[in-house]
Amino acid sequence: MQKIITIAGKEYQDSTRNKLFLILLAFLFVLTVTSIAVASSDFQSKVVEYNKSVQILSSLGKSGETISAPQFFPLKMLRGVMDYLEIIGAIIGIILGYLSIAKEKGKNTLQLLLSRPLGKFDIASGKFLGNSLLVLSVLAIEAFTTYFIMWSVGGAQLSLVEIAKLGFVLLASYFYVMFFFCFTSVLVLKFRSLPNALIVSFVVWLIFVLIIPQIGDTMDPDNQIPGGFFKSMSIAKPQEKEIMARFKTYETVRNAVEESSVTKHYERLSFALLGIKDEYNGKSVGYVLKDRWNDWVWVAAFFGIALFLEYFAFRKRSFLNKTD
């Protein structure tokens, strides 16, 4: 175990010293802070507006209860943050996965590591553990920053249930980022040329993260007009569903396109937990988890398979020969 911890410690240290990783992290934080600050200030102005209206009514001698309190769901403010985690979180996974293996392969230090009395999977475990800790700390800092801005700018308080939901989103985010980590590690281990492995990782990232969700999104009839088709026709949600029920095949195809991407499952799951999808607002953690179990299974499966492949790639020392 000591050996695994030593490798993990070195992984953590190497990555936190890597400039590219730090630049990427800076991008993520700039985007997160901007997105959450905008949402928080918007949230706060809505609260102030409501309180003002209540005050005016009270001063007129009327009860403030005559205007219904708007439903404030602070976690909804995380929509932009989730979008950026989908895009840049995945790239962080790719870069960490790449650096983790490429630094050994490129400089032939893998031979030195393998000449030590290490167990069969010690290197794989050490690398996985070190990067897991790194990803978890990035996610924790991200969550803390988000919460701090929501509280300081938006004046939002989170309930215990909301904190629990946030915890589950963190767990899903960990699976998601580590899927890209493991997947890229496998490619770098298997490919003779390191840059080619990186290019293929980016192609997969492009397909999963951007192209498939984008196709699904643009195939949605409601997305064809800015503001939404049904809104422009003054059609309510239940009626919209009724109409769309007649286009089952088209919707099934559209759904199948989206379902093939790990990113879409991660998005559906986190949007449900955070209440960005309105129908899940105010629902218990148990209800959301149960209703979105399908997405849980997919996200965990993508991660699990990639992790298995990484260990599988490490099982033989033959990957040593695959250095350019």
């Binding site: 932009g80 950026y84 951007l210």
Partner: peptide, 11 residues
């Protein structure tokens, strides 16, 4: 301050 999803939607 557009959401990335909005950035990718050509509409």
């Amino acid at each position: 301050a557009l959401d990335p999803t909005a950035l990718l939607n050509p509409t």
